[in-house]
Amino acid sequence: MSGPAIDGWSRSDRAKAAAKLMTGWVALLWLLEAADLATGHALDPYGVTPRESGELAHIVPSAFLHFGFGHVAANSVPLLVLGFLAALGGIRRLLAVVALVVVFGGLGVWLFSPSGTVTAGASGVVFGLFGYVLARGFVDRRPLEAVVGLLVAAVWGGSMLTGVVPTDGISWQGHLFGLLTGVTAAFVLRRGPRPAALTT
């Protein structure tokens, strides 16, 4: 019979943990937007205003804040799905990917967004997770994960490409740097091919 999972987690354990984490994450985004609305949009200033040194501290909170429930809704499904798929490879690995995307994607926004704008939202993380899920199977040489990446590209690839094209009214800078950081994270956090299961 096959042995236990190498890291002590079965596939069902990973799936349950991934589902709980991402459901809680998306719920938090909705709760924050509800709090923002209830306080007269008191959280909106915690978005990133470019090239002001004091705004660097807003890079992290800006990834959890939105400008209206429509904005949250647009990010919720892709964040839930892509985060779940990424988390199947390990919760700590997912958190490392998100940390890289938030920091470096946020720096891209801070450096290159137009003056006088304020940027917030989880779409940079969504684009980062898309890039990570797309690339990791090929980088790690894991066929199943590569197939999952191709399926994700088939579903969201068109909208992701559109999202990194310079367009007024959206933070294409956050999308672009999020995507590039997600792909880079697949290389930084690369693993070897999955070892073959042994039977006795």
Rank of each mutant, 00 (worst) to 15 (best):
K20P: 00
K20F: 09
H71T: 07
L31R: 00
W9I: 04
G124Y: 01
S113M: 03
V77A: 15
A87V: 04
L151V: 11
A74K: 10
F104P: 05
A154W: 11
V101P: 04
L94G: 15
V101D: 04
P114F: 00
G116A: 08
I170N: 03
G192K: 08
L179V: 11
V139P: 06
G116V: 01
L29M: 10
R194P: 02
V77K: 06
M1Y: 10
D140F: 05
V102P: 05
V26R: 00
L37I: 09
L134K: 10
V102E: 06
P195G: 07
G182C: 10
V165N: 02
T162I: 10
G174H: 01
G131D: 02
Y132L: 11
T49H: 02
G70S: 03
V102F: 07
L80C: 11
S76T: 05
V152L: 10
V103I: 14
L151P: 08
L180T: 13
V118H: 00
A27R: 02
L94I: 14
L28M: 14
G157L: 09
G182N: 12
S2M: 14
A146G: 13
L85Q: 10
E33T: 03
W9Q: 15
G89Q: 13
F177Y: 13
Y132E: 12
L94A: 14
T49E: 08
L21E: 02
W156H: 02
D13V: 02
R14F: 09
A63H: 07
V60L: 15
V147F: 13
G182I: 12
T162R: 13
S62E: 07
A73M: 10
A15F: 14
V103F: 04
V98W: 07
P143F: 10
S171C: 12
L32W: 06
F69P: 01
S53F: 12
P4K: 06
V81N: 01
F112W: 13
T200V: 13
F104N: 05
L107F: 08
